[in-house]
């Protein structure tokens, strides 16, 4: 097990590469994220922080540079191999919650486990436990439209934890929530963080950034400041 869970080397994402309207969403970024670390990524809108998060979460491929996940260069892996790593080791929490409206809270949490296809796991039982852990033991069979914003985000967090990931990536998880609920969500994420996995949160909220162990400040696709 490597101490560094994610390492990027001159990572970049260019759109319309080589043309007059080339956009450098991420430009030669080098970061190390240590196992168990709580980092926050801050920066103005359009600075490239979501693009960075998507790339380190293996949701998007870089145009150039390398990403090492748990010490392994993933640049040359196939889509299916990358999907498998993402499924087993990464959990996502989005600003828009992105729950499947058709499924109940319980089924939404079960879904990543079902997709993962480990038959020996009692997915229903595990989903129930996770939902209890995020404080939604009483909302198991409600569908997303019947849940409040805070509740939806709790379901999303439970879903992100379903396959016991090594890192949770959250893209403005409090962006659609009021201040009080947002604070609760961050506290919940941090409580999870204490259990030993890595947490990276994109945020506008300076107060969240303050409690993070490391803050990466991005502007125009480049890191302008990195520190604790």
């Amino acid at each position: 097990m490597n101490k560094v869970i994610i390492k990027t080397e001159n990572l970049c994402k260019y759109y319309n590469k080589g043309q007059h309207n080339e956009v450098r969403a991420i430009d030669k970024v080098n970061i190390d994220i240590n196992r168990g670390e709580f980092i926050s990524i801050i920066g103005p809108s359009g600075s490239g922080k979501s693009t960075l998060l998507h790339m380190i979460g293996l949701l998007d491929r870089p145009t150039c540079g390398k990403i090492y996940f748990d010490g392994k260069d993933i640049s040359n892996l196939s889509d299916n191999q990358i999907t498998k790593i993402r499924r087993e080791k990464v959990g996502f929490v989005f600003q828009q919650f992105n729950l499947i409206p058709l499924l109940t809270a319980l089924e939404n949490v079960e879904l990543p486990m079902t997709i993962n296809g480990h038959k020996e796991i009692d997915t229903k039982k595990k989903a129930e436990e996770l939902l209890k852990k995020v404080g939604l033991g009483h909302r198991l069979n409600n569908r997303p439209p019947q849940l409040s914003g805070g509740e939806k985000q709790r379901v999303a967090i439970a879903r992100a934890l379903a396959n016991d990931p090594e890192i949770i990536l959250a893209d403005e998880p409090t962006g659609n929530l009021d201040t009080k609920t947002g604070k609760e969500i961050i506290n919940l994420l941090r409580r999870m963080d204490k259990k030993g996995f890595t947490l990276a949160i994109i945020t506008h909220d300076q107060r969240i950034a303050k409690v993070a162990e490391k803050v990466i400040n991005i502007k125009d696709g480049r890191i302008i400041k990195e520190g604790g």
Partner: peptide, 16 residues
């Protein structure tokens, strides 16, 4: 489309 994106984000492969 968005739901399909979510499915993929939480680990669904192309063939799934």
């Amino acid at each position: 489309r968005r739901e399909i994106g979510v499915l993929k984000a939480i680990g669904a492969t192309n063939s799934y």
